[in-house]
Design a protein around this nucleic acid. Structure first.
Lengths: 198, 198, 198, 198
DNA sequence: AATGAATGAGCGTTCATTCAT
DNA sequence: GATGAATGAACGCTCATTCAT
């Protein structure tokens, strides 16, 4: 089975890709507003003016980071579902994938997605939301499967939102080098959703 | 039983209080960095220079917002526990109180607490963390009670973090004027923690 | 013979006098521009707004300091000449008095007179210059006496300017607690003017 | 023999050099604190923000002015001594050079050095003092030569300070277009130091 | 006389963006 | 594509001065 690349598509070894990676990390560490284009340029090894040959504005860099990370993570979600038919197994695939998204290789970019949302222009927010809908639909499909199979009684929308809270907040405390593994956390969250005995 | 005031202590009708309320809302809507001292001053109806008779710097306004909201919500947590002895009832009191904190009267300030954390100086971060510890200890005490009474098997720390995720994320979707009430959401979250049948 | 008071007339124990003393010291230590009215007020133990019951503006405080110090030091010059008839003795009296002005009790205010000159309004500069003319005339009279008696060959104006340079610069190096006394320095300067053998 | 350039090294025709020249004049005319970066920028014909491509802060401009003028004038002192062996001739060379420093081409910058000293940061003060030590050592060497040859009896340090006073004060009265020439003033000051008959 | 909150113009500095080279 | 000097608007903050109390 295909593995997600360890680098976000579009955050590859090209100048543009290195720029986005650096920007994602800086935005995450310092916030969008506190990150100057000079910071980004220095990280990539060019002059600040040269950034604008790659992106028309600083906000477009933020937008590109968000687009790349959503696309990449949507693909990761798809791969996590591929070949699985059991709804619970599919749910675990999604939780595991989303946790990796949040605490793993794309954690900087994901954090940016949450924390720097309002720094996007309204138009770009719309475009990101459209991409996010695709991502969320994959979740909703699986949650509806679970309801159809009787393994989930609660409302699917509310359930998704509680899951989102649990996974997204993990960026604030989960330690990739601690004793709790992503697999274990996946099971713990699964049990909060469909119950332990079921 | 005493009810929490509907206005955060220190965000009252005094000039300082109105200033903090306005700042909290602006910080929440636009972010700390994108909010200018002139924005805040305009909202309060004074000149920007006059802000500095009340606070030595813009960052101190942010700090004051955070301190006030934590103090107020810690007190709200205490009142939610007052008079309750059953651990599950106490848990529901905490969830309900925290939800009101996040989607109710102090939602702007709470949002600021999460999203503008890094805008605080290191020293102020320490001071806020000390206040936060008091708040969190109230939670940990109740979760340990639940474990003692056998109503919670999962690790208390992890449990608290999952609850934090669920409650804090509600700021992004809960509609105070929607059909779902805080009481209902409290029950839903409670069931994710101690199970529905128990 | 009357002794000059150890406090400048007008910088006495009254509120106005204490204010001027404090201002003179602050202006000397920090410069006029870097001294805030709050600095002055704090030193005197009042609120900054209250300063303006004593002086119409900050610049007027500077002006008052300068006027007081010139008046006081002109009087000191007069007293140094009183009762002396020998031109050389009179010269030494002036040198000694001017040195005391510059390195002694009025050193702060004298320093202000030199360094903060351009902070005065043009009109106030004229008024101070008029007072300074009185002071300088006392010097010129004695220097002309020395020329009449053949003890000074050099031009009186140029001589006065060289003396002014030597005495005024002493504020930058003379140590009141060092081994060189004002009396000794007076003799050294006298010898630069009228020659040692004469 | 090499002549000192009529423009301070580093205050040449480059943007940086023109900026320093303009700043030196403005600082001298208005004082450092009363000179705004907008004043300097206007003088040079750029926007105020553009200043900060050349210097990290306004204070660094002041520092640069001082460093350039001391370096230049130290070199001028060296050239004044070059080829001269007679101590009196060397003394006259120094006096003449210092007078040209103070009333001639570098008078603005020299004035700034004296009057705006306290506007420097403590660290920059140290660095300027180190440069000043080199300058002063050239003076002290010649004064010691005069003592060795018996042409100066007075203490060398005190003598230097009296000379400093006389030369530096000349900025307040010497008129380059008046009837008194620098050469004449040099002789007058020389006579105050080593006596006319000697 | 004194207070102290408020003013408002102005400060030094930042920084995304432009553009001639 | 890259440079780096320049722009210019905006920022947080200062402070002499005012004035109702």
């Amino acid at each position: 089975m295909a593995q997600p690349q360890t680098i976000v598509n579009g955050m590859d070894d090209t100048p543009r890709g290195k720029l986005l990676s650096a920007a994602a990390r800086l935005f995450r560490d310092q916030g969008f507003d506190r990150t100057t284009v000079r910071d980004i340029a220095r990280e990539v090894g060019i002059q600040s003016g040269s950034l604008f040959h790659h992106f028309p504005s600083k906000e477009d860099i933020l937008f590109a980071v968000m687009v790349e990370v959503i696309r990449f993570n949507t693909e990761r979600l798809r791969m996590a579902l591929a070949g699985k038919t059991d709804p619970v197994e599919r749910l675990c695939g999604l939780i595991d994938a989303e946790l990796r998204t949040i605490v793993g290789d794309t954690r900087e970019a994901m954090s940016v997605l949450v924390y720097e949302w309002r720094c996007l222009t309204a138009e770009h927010q719309q475009q990101v939301l459209a991409l996010r809908d695709v991502y969320e639909q994959l979740w909703m499909d699986v949650l509806e499967e679970l309801r159809s199979s009787g393994q989930l009684q609660a409302d699917a929308f509310i359930t998704r939102r509680l899951i989102t809270g649990m996974t997204s907040w993990s960026s604030n405390w989960f330690d990739a080098h601690g004793s709790l593994t992503i697999e274990q956390l996946t099971e713990i969250i699964r049990d909060r959703i469909i119950g332990e005995s079921r």
